[in-house]
Design a protein around this nucleic acid. Structure first.
Lengths: 89, 89, 89, 89
DNA sequence: CGGCGCTACGTCCGTC
DNA sequence: GACGGACGTAGCGCCG
């Protein structure tokens, strides 16, 4: 391979480094935001607790509401599965 | 039972229910936002993957950037010690 | 630090190496067993499939049975939580 | 019910139900065993932790033992490349 | 190879 | 402040 071709190769590498850096930074920024929201959630629980509510029960209730939604989804997918199994495309 | 007592008792209960509902909804809203950001993060990883980057390695690097240098050394040292103890030269 | 103290330190290290090795080997053995059971499970599915059963539906059904059990547990813990919340220790 | 007609139709269905039930139960039993072993593994880790070992590092070492040397080098090389690209000398 | 279900890991919370 | 418990999220192996 002739010498002249090397620089041609190094540039894509730099570009990749640039792009990698860009991806990583975008992700890190998003993770920060997500973490911040976690802090907000904690604050709301604290506020509720200060207002005399039982945090444990609140968590449980919120969890239940999620599970109910999940159950509904599950039922739908089950329906699909059974329909498929019965050839009701 | 005198007239005055009932309202005094029922009203605080309603207020509590209102406030509880408010807290729960605020939390659920925040959790949705957090989940959405998780989706964004996944999208960025997908985009990077499409650009030829190795997602697994990216995650590892991002993890390393979160640790400070001391912790990193600590971990590596421990790992070496354990490897030696197990004859994994 | 006087020279004499070093050997005192090296011996526990060796003992630790022994113990570490022991722990690691126990874990690896257990993981092998677990993996083997995974193979058995796969075999049963294969057998069922050979007998004309729909594996996907079977998995779904088994998953459902797990969820039902989980729901039952959840209800019990909810009951406990509410009892606690209401001071019905 | 007369002996002749009904059993011819009901019996195969019952047999299938029987067999399906059998398969499902075998699988569920195996899954229980697998889960139990998972518990045993956790116990060993706990015991090791109680003996002063670092569980996280232990997991890492056990993971490394699962990979062969080539894979290990591969991963480390990739990691170095990405670290360099991000200026994490 | 892409989805999915399970497992494992990190995090947060209450406890001692 | 170390510990265990609960929860959500990420990684992994299986399947189609």
């Amino acid at each position: 391979m002739p010498d002249g071709s090397r620089p041609i190769k190094t540039k894509p590498a730099n570009i990749s480094a640039e792009r990698l850096k860009s991806f990583v930074e975008r992700i890190e920024k998003l993770e920060e935001e997500r973490k911040a929201i976690g802090g907000d959630i904690r604050d709301v629980y604290s506020e509720a607790k200060g207002g005399g509510f039982d945090v444990k029960v609140m968590r449980k209730v919120i969890g239940l509401r999620k599970m109910d939604a999940a159950d509904r989804d599950e039922q739908e997918t089950m329906l699909d599965v059974y329909k498929q199994a019965l050839g009701m495309v």
